[in-house]
Simulated assay, not measured.
Amino acid sequence: MLTGKQTRYLRSMAHHLKPIFQVGKGGVNGHLITHINEALEVRELIKITVLNNSGADRNEVGAQLAEEAQAELVQVIGKIIILYKESREHKTIVLP
């Protein structure tokens, strides 16, 4: 569980990142979760875009992605979801 200070810090770091995944009509599936886990291990902090044709609620998609990837949901703003998961081998982010 992230504190408010840690969440603000991660949001500021994520501001300049570009989304690397998109959730579309297919929704959340095992293949997407596998790739998200791999990306989180390398990057620790990622952005995901929820496309308009998805039809799912963005907050629900964010919560589902965080739960299935065992990551922390940093923020859902507009159509962007920010996830954080501490890396075991490639730790680069030091939380305050």
Rank of each mutant, 00 (worst) to 15 (best):
L95R: 07
S12Y: 10
T92S: 15
L32P: 02
D57G: 09
N59M: 11
P19K: 04
Y84A: 06
R88Y: 02
M13H: 06
G27N: 03
T34A: 13
Q64N: 06
T49R: 11
L2G: 03
H35S: 04
K85M: 07
V28D: 02
L51F: 09
Q70G: 09
G55P: 04
R11W: 05
E60W: 05
D57C: 09
F21K: 12
A71I: 06
K25P: 02
V74R: 00
S87L: 03
E60T: 14
G24R: 10
R43H: 15
L95D: 10
T7H: 03
P19F: 13
V28Q: 01
G4E: 11
T92W: 11
T7R: 11
G4Y: 04
N59K: 12
E68D: 03
G30S: 14
Q6W: 03
L40K: 02
V61C: 04
V61T: 09
Q75T: 14
F21H: 07
L17P: 14
N52S: 14
L17N: 15
L17W: 14
Q64A: 14
H16L: 11
K47H: 07
Y84D: 09
L73G: 01
T7L: 12
D57K: 11
E41N: 04
M1L: 04
Q75V: 15
I82F: 06
L65P: 00
E68P: 00
K91R: 15
A63F: 03
A56C: 06
G4W: 05
E38G: 05
G55Y: 03
I77V: 13
E72K: 13
I81Q: 04
M1R: 07
G4K: 09
G27H: 05
G26D: 12
L45M: 11
E38L: 10
Q70C: 12
L10C: 07
P19H: 08
H31C: 13
I80M: 11
